[in-house]
């Protein structure tokens, strides 16, 4: 079995985001980029499948820091590394890159494409349904478990409200990973050093053939929506206030 894993580098979610002067983009100059957390889970699920079935794993990365993340993927167990050209200084728009992923899939012929169920930049739609539908492959978003049982692909999908549905899916397929079956593993420094010599292939960007989704007119920071009271940062003062608030509202007794 051959697995293609998509790794997207996106702005660090914990960082502060500032807008460009025209208000239509975020200022990327000083941003840290990191691997999309859900894609990290996709990679882990691929490696777990490799360990269980002997599959080969091809990792394709896009965005700033791709080299580094591809080396990490190889250190984790990926067999091949490919970099996808990205538009400079722009959002990694799944609708825009779907065509490139589909072209890569047609050339590498994987049985399974794994990527994160969402990315924080998929304003114009998610990669899993775009890629799946363009390829004509079944696609399922939001997996908490992907496995091969009796030669069939079994996927557990989180449906909301704590409900989980398990499906048997005909290959080839595209799965959007929410959580890998196990937490992404730690990679040792020595494995990373070995992987630094990885030869990274290049995949050209291909248009998906979609019309542009929508025009971003303006970005803005959400205003303070809440009218809550800030109790400050001194734990004793905060505890005093909360104790009286809870007592006043009848919560202090059990």
């Amino acid at each position: 079995m051959k697995i293609l894993v998509v790794l997207r580098m996106i702005p660090d979610s914990a960082g502060e985001l500032e807008l460009t002067s025209d208000g239509r983009g975020i200022d990327r100059e000083w941003l840290d980029f990191q691997l999309n957390d859900f894609d990290d889970h996709g990679l882990e699920e691929a490696i777990l499948l490799k360990e269980a079935t002997g599959a080969t794993v091809i990792a394709v990365a896009i965005g700033e820091g791709s080299n580094r993340v591809l080396q990490m993927a190889v250190a984790r167990g990926a067999d091949e590394a490919v970099m996808l050209e990205a538009e400079e200084d722009g959002m990694i728009d799944s609708r825009a890159i779907a065509g490139s992923i589909v072209a890569l899939a047609r050339s590498k012929a994987p049985d399974l494409i794994l990527c994160g169920v969402q990315s924080t930049e998929d304003l114009f739609g998610q990669l899993v349904p775009y890629a799946g539908t363009l390829l004509g492959w079944p696609h399922v978003s939001g997996s908490s478990r992907v496995g091969i049982e009796a030669s069939a692909l079994r996927v557990t999908q989180e449906r909301g409200g704590g409900i989980a549905a398990t499906y048997e899916i005909a290959l080839p397929a595209v799965i959007g990973v929410q959580t890998a079956s196990k937490a992404p593993r730690y990679v040792s420094g020595s494995k990373l050093r070995e992987a630094s010599k990885t030869v990274i292939g290049k995949a050209p960007s291909e248009p998906a053939g979609f019309e542009k989704s929508a025009e971003i007119v303006a970005l803005r920071l959400p205003g303070q929506r809440g009218t809550g009271e800030n109790l400050g940062d001194n734990p004793e003062d905060v505890a005093d206030r909360l104790a009286s608030i809870l007592a006043a509202k009848g919560f202090a007794g059990v």
Partner: peptide
């Protein structure tokens, strides 16, 4: 925007070529 919606919205946009905005 639900578990189902994540697959359905993109699928319909891909089939029709229509614009899609999420969230």
């Amino acid at each position: 925007y639900s578990a189902n919606g994540l697959d359905v919205a993109g699928d319909l946009a891909a089939r029709t070529g229509w614009p899609l905005v999420s969230y």
